[in-house]
Simulated assay, not measured.
Amino acid sequence: MFFKAYFINFGFLGDTLPALLPQVYVAYDPVSAKDLPNGKTRIRQRIDFLMILPNLKRVIIEIDGKHHYAREDGRADTKRYAEMVRVDRELRLRGYEVYRFGGAEFYNDQNTPEDNAVSVVKDFFTALFKQHEIL
């Protein structure tokens, strides 16, 4: 839904539309391996979407379901949440902008999830593209 809504809203930008790459693995720079625990040479983190803007700014977009912050029984999992925000900090320190959407943003009783996605995506990317002078 998110991917489709992106093109519905911004396809008019044609060749200047920044690519929105789904399901990308971000490999951490081996140069920083000495700082990683247990002698690892790099960490792999799968992200929902990666976008590289014309100014070479890297943007990560995550769509979070409850598995990002809750156990299977639906109760909050503070360790899982803490790990998620720790990884976000590391990504930001490596130059990425990180934006998270709660999956529930796309569901309400008034509209279909697809209609909500079009609206949420339009608002977000309009603001992001203005900030980076794409619009």
Rank of each mutant, 00 (worst) to 15 (best):
D15G: 11
P54K: 08
K4P: 05
V118A: 11
L93F: 13
L91F: 09
I47W: 04
L135P: 03
R75H: 14
I61K: 00
R46G: 07
G65S: 06
Y96V: 12
V120E: 05
M1N: 08
R100F: 11
R46N: 11
D88H: 12
R42S: 15
L91Q: 10
A33V: 10
F101A: 00
Y107Q: 04
K66L: 09
L128W: 04
Y107L: 03
V98F: 06
D29G: 11
F12Y: 11
F12H: 12
A82V: 00
E97C: 12
A104W: 02
I8Q: 15
A82H: 01
D77W: 00
E114I: 12
R92Y: 14
F129Q: 01
I134N: 01
Y69C: 12
V59P: 02
P54E: 03
A5C: 07
L135Q: 09
G39N: 10
R71H: 09
G39E: 08
L13G: 05
D115M: 14
V121G: 01
H67R: 10
A70Y: 02
D123S: 14
A82Y: 00
V31F: 06
V31Q: 11
I52K: 08
R75D: 14
I63E: 05
L135W: 10
I52Q: 12
E62G: 03
R71G: 10
F10Y: 04
P22H: 12
D35P: 07
S119N: 14
K57P: 04
D123H: 08
H67A: 13
G65R: 01
H67T: 07
Y6A: 13
G39W: 04
R46I: 05
G95I: 07
M84C: 03
G102A: 14
F124C: 04
T112Q: 06
A76H: 09
Y107H: 08
V87M: 00
N38G: 10
K40I: 08
M84R: 03
K40D: 13
P54C: 05
L135K: 07
P22G: 11
V59Q: 02
N111T: 13
Y69D: 15
I43W: 00
F3H: 06
T41P: 02
E83Q: 14
V121R: 03
Q110W: 08
Y69P: 05
M51R: 04
Y69R: 13
A104Q: 08
R94N: 15
V120I: 12
Y107W: 05
G95C: 09
R89G: 15
F125I: 06
M51P: 02
H68F: 00
T78S: 10
G14Y: 02
V120M: 03
A117S: 13
R58L: 10
F129T: 01
F129G: 01
M84K: 05
K57T: 12
F12E: 03
A19M: 13
L56S: 09
G14P: 01
R86W: 05
I61H: 00
F3S: 01
L128A: 04
E105Q: 12
Y25W: 12
L93K: 12
Q23A: 13
R100K: 15
A70T: 07
D15T: 12
V85F: 05
N111R: 09
K4S: 15
F129L: 02
Q131F: 09
G14E: 09
Y6T: 07
F125D: 05
T78P: 01
R94V: 08
I60Q: 05
Y81C: 00
A82N: 03
